[in-house]
């Protein structure tokens, strides 16, 4: 099959937009994993939960509030609640009062968040079984503008929704970066990783910072749920098995705890995926390539590729503001 230049160009643009979405989906995970050493296996389930709730409520009420922007905010707020729930059920009992997190603690939180995620997964089916209005495969009919697409040249069409999703994704990723790297709260969060005992000495409760980190991570994760929904048009709980592994690939590739690093890794992964699909027209090959990249990075450079990005960007932004480091 001959691939046209237009196909490749379209794959490139779609890849950037998809990559932006993937980046935004992963930034919450890199925060909780990088800072707290909690490998949150419920991450994908939380995103799907947000998307499922948004879609179901949209089908029920069809109100403007639940168009993407409203939904992103609503789900972010719900994320605060879910974050607190996740922390007190699956994180606090294991590492709430622990200063040094060992491999054993890490595996324990991994299993606990895994259980938490399974609960969320079952919740959709339970809700569908016990209520008449909850659907396990809901869809939405959001589309923006008239016509709902943009023409580039004569053959490339990109849906406006996707452009919007790409832009909002960047905003979300950057907002988290700003929150963690450019505020006092962010400094405290980073301090927990380095020395939580010293933090307690200067009068900051490490438990509270851990709680806050979990909440921020989950809130940002859940706010990307409606974006995923807007991108795909429909969602099922099984989509977790596509979202979560990609998020893990991206976080590992981007370097643990590096938010902009994850975002850039997301862009690269999205580009790779879309370009492979555009050239081969085979989704299975694109996924094989994606996960081979993961195995390669793990084999060659398990510390990730873009770990330095956050520090560079933060200091550049500070310098521009004339703040001494």
């Amino acid at each position: 099959m001959v691939v046209t230049a237009a196909e490749l160009a379209r794959g490139f643009i779609e890849g950037l937009l998809y990559g932006s979405l993937l980046g935004a989906i992963s930034v919450g995970l890199t925060l909780i994993w990088g800072v707290m050493k909690v490998v949150n296996l419920a991450h994908g389930h939380l995103i799907v939960l947000a998307a499922m709730f948004t879609a179901n409520f949209y089908v029920l009420y069809k109100v403007a509030l639940l168009n993407p922007m409203g939904a992103i905010i609503t789900m972010g707020i719900l994320g605060v609640v879910m974050g607190a729930l996740l922390y007190y059920t699956s994180v606090h009992p294991i590492i709430g009062h622990v200063d040094v997190i060992t491999l054993k603690h890490e595996m324990a939180t991994l299993m606990a968040t895994f259980g938490f995620g399974l609960t969320l997964f079952g919740l959709h089916y339970a809700l569908a079984a016990w209520t008449s209005w909850y659907s396990t495969e809901p869809g939405i009919s959001w589309s923006f503008g008239h016509p709902p697409y943009v023409m580039i040249g004569s053959t490339i069409t990109i849906v406006k929704t996707k452009i919007l999703v790409g832009i909002i994704s960047f905003v979300i990723a950057f907002a988290l970066f700003a929150l963690v790297r450019l505020t006092n709260l962010g400094l405290m969060i980073q301090a927990v990783t380095q020395d939580s005992r010293a933090l307690a000495l200067v009068g900051i409760d490490p438990v509270r910072i851990k709680l806050l980190t979990t909440i921020i991570s989950v809130a940002f994760a859940m706010s990307t749920g409606p974006l995923y929904l807007a991108w795909a048009g429909s969602v099922t709980p099984l989509k977790e098995s596509i979202i979560a592994p990609l998020a893990f690939v991206i976080v590992v590739a981007g370097g643990l705890g590096s938010i902009m690093g994850s975002y850039v890794a997301g862009l690269i992964l999205g580009l790779t995926y879309e370009l492979v699909v555009a050239t081969t027209q085979e989704v299975s090959i694109a996924l094989v390539v994606t996960f081979l990249i993961l195995l390669l990075i793990l084999a060659l450079k398990p510390t990730g590729l873009f770990g330095y990005l956050d520090d560079r960007l933060a200091s550049a932004l500070r310098r521009r503001r004339g703040v001494a480091e």
Partner: peptide
């Protein structure tokens, strides 16, 4: 992957599962 510890190993095995799954489908 056995040079990796803890969560890295876990995620590498997930990646392996997907690689073989899509290879089989292909």
């Amino acid at each position: 992957v056995l040079r990796l510890r803890g969560a890295y190993f876990a995620i590498a095995t997930i990646g392996l599962d997907y690689v073989v799954l899509y290879l089989a489908i292909y």
